[in-house]
Design a protein around this nucleic acid. Structure first.
Length: 482
RNA sequence: UCCCGAGUAGCUCAAUCGGCAGAGCGGGUGGCUGUUAACCACUAGGUUGUAGGUUCAAGUCCUACCUCGGGAGCCA
């Protein structure tokens, strides 16, 4: 049963005797039989309008679903002349009869018996009845959400977040809110934003002239987190299977279609588990995310398939049905060397895989998601578990066509002495990591985890090519609008 | 940060060899009895990213800067 939202209640009681039931377009379209030929009340925003002398059409979107509902209005309406002039974006309250449509492009429509203009949009609305470039729409993040593409993107974004929680919660994972403000100075994940309550001018100094960070509100220099992994590892030690899902900040001056300075990351950590368990989890998760989105956003996904990326649905369906491929870094280098392909960068053991190499593996060799494992220790983080060969670590990256690296993870080094040794090799301040070393001291255990780039997953699901177009208000170099 | 490319009407783009600043959409006005990015007519709309330079003459050539886009690095 439909219930009025609290904020609608006052309005409804005032007119209760005369007013038909207030519904959303989604409610109408979900059970049309229930409402057909009945009078209904709607509210929403004008997407487009086509007007003749004595009648007109308005496509109304009320945010409840991707599709619009067509309103038909005729000159019997006392305010016909005003309604005939509605501009894109104008908000309306509508009463009318829900009927089968005479037109070909929509099954149902509403024959309006009354339309009230709630808020007229002025004619200089930058969103027009025409195709806009994503570049232009990025300059108006507060308005672009009212276009088809972004409507679809941000609803799928919401659903994808839900799908992630559902996947982990159903398996009894505990969701841990790791801190956004952190005291860990770099763990190899990148440049950090400094958090300070003190202005740069007159920053207090110690007698020796160096900055006196103890004067900070938090008593020390702090940063925005670049990863919740180290903090969540401690919770893994007690809760067994855990995950973080929250905003992450990297201060790199990256200018690419797949990097942002603020993005969201999912980081599961599983106890008594090795790299294979880790990869199994990642594969099951990716498949769950895909099937959840396909099931819960069919309109949006059909839109992406038609207008953004023609092969999208076929590709995602293929991923659901295929076992993810796995190969070691050493095997990957071998394939690349024997490929006969002319790469710009050399394919030499010990060198990092370049984007062109990753794309070749994911797009040409396998044409689907592929795990690359066991990288040379020199190109991976200090906390990854050393293999017996003493040269490689138990790392894994998941590469997907179109996006590239979407997941990076590893089995963690659980052996105290080896971990300390690696930290010293990397020149890390071991004294700052005592709490992290405690995890290896007070009951160590094999464990593994990974980081999934939420926006990269969203790009993969939707076929969108630029990370700026899957974040509501993207933060990238030179851009922090709204 | 590096390498390319692009900045012209609100938006998307034209403008030939350096020679009068153009169109479609959107806006405004009028017309049209079932439209689907509706259609038809008329109309307004410009410091050509910024600052210099070359030239009789610069949207067009040169220099610097800014911004955006593509690629690369860093990574998720």
């Amino acid at each position: 049963m439909q219930c009025a939202m609290p904020w609608q209640y006052k309005h409804r009681t005032e007119t209760m005797t005369m007013q038909p039931k207030a519904l959303t377009i989604k409610e109408l379209m979900t059970s049309p039989q229930q409402y057909i030929d009945q009078e209904v009340a709607l509210s929403g925003w004008v997407r487009t309008a086509r007007v003749s002398k004595n009648f007109g059409f308005i496509e109304l979107n009320d945010g409840s679903m991707f599709k619009n509902l067509q309103l038909v209005f005729e000159d019997q309406l006392t305010n016909f002349a005003d309604i005939a002039k509605v501009s894109i974006g104008t908000s309306l309250q509508v009463r009318g009869v829900f009927v089968k449509s005479l037109g070909a492009n929509q099954p149902y429509e509403v024959k309006a018996t009354g339309i009230d203009i709630v808020g007229m949009a002025t004619p200089d609305n930058p969103i027009q009845k025409k195709r806009h470039t994503f570049e232009f729409l990025r300059t108006i993040p507060h308005l672009r959400l009212r276009t088809n593409t972004y409507m679809a993107v941000f609803r799928v974004r919401s659903l994808l977040a839900q799908a992630i929680h559902e996947f982990f919660q159903k398996q009894n994972f505990v969701y841990v809110h790791t801190p956004i403000i952190t005291g860990i100075d770099a763990e190899g994940a990148g440049e950090m934003f400094h958090v300070s309550t003190i202005g740069a001018e007159n920053y207090p100094r110690k007698p020796d002239g160096s900055l006196d960070e103890s004067q900070e509100l938090l008593g020390r220099q702090t940063y925005l987190t670049v990863s919740g992994q180290l903090a969540v590892e401690a919770f893994c030690m007690g809760f067994r299977n855990v995950y973080t899902f929250g905003p992450t900040f990297r201060a790199e001056n990256s200018n690419t279609a797949r990097h942002a300075n603020e993005f969201w990351m999912i980081e599961p950590e599983i106890a008594f588990a090795d790299l294979q368990d880790n990869m199994n989890l990642a594969e099951a998760m990716m498949k769950h995310l895909i099937s959840y989105v396909l099931e819960n956003a069919p309109d949006e996904m059909a839109f992406f398939n038609s207008f953004i990326d023609k092969g999208l649905l076929e590709r995602l369906q293929g991923v659901l049905n295929a076992k993810f491929q796995t190969m070691t870094y050493t095997e990957a280098i071998d394939i690349l060397q024997k490929s006969g392909e002319q790469f710009e960068y050399p394919t030499e053991w010990g060198q990092n895989l370049q984007t062109e190499h990753e794309r070749y593996l994911a797009e040409k060799t396998f044409n689907g998601p592929v795990f690359v494992t066991d990288y040379p220790k020199s190109i991976k983080a200090f906390y990854m578990r050393m293999n017996d060969d003493q040269k490689t670590v138990r790392a894994m990256d998941l590469l997907v066509p179109g996006v590239g690296e979407i997941i990076g993870g590893s089995q963690r080094e659980e052996r105290f002495d080896l971990l300390v040794e690696r930290m010293k090799e990397e020149g890390l301040p071991v004294e700052q990591y005592q709490w992290y070393l405690d995890i290896r001291k007070f009951g160590t255990f094999p464990h593994a985890g990974y980081g999934l780039g939420f926006e990269r997953a969203l790009m993969y699901m939707t076929g969108m090519k630029n990370i700026r177009d899957v974040i509501p208000y993207p933060r990238t170099p030179n851009n922090a609008m709204c």
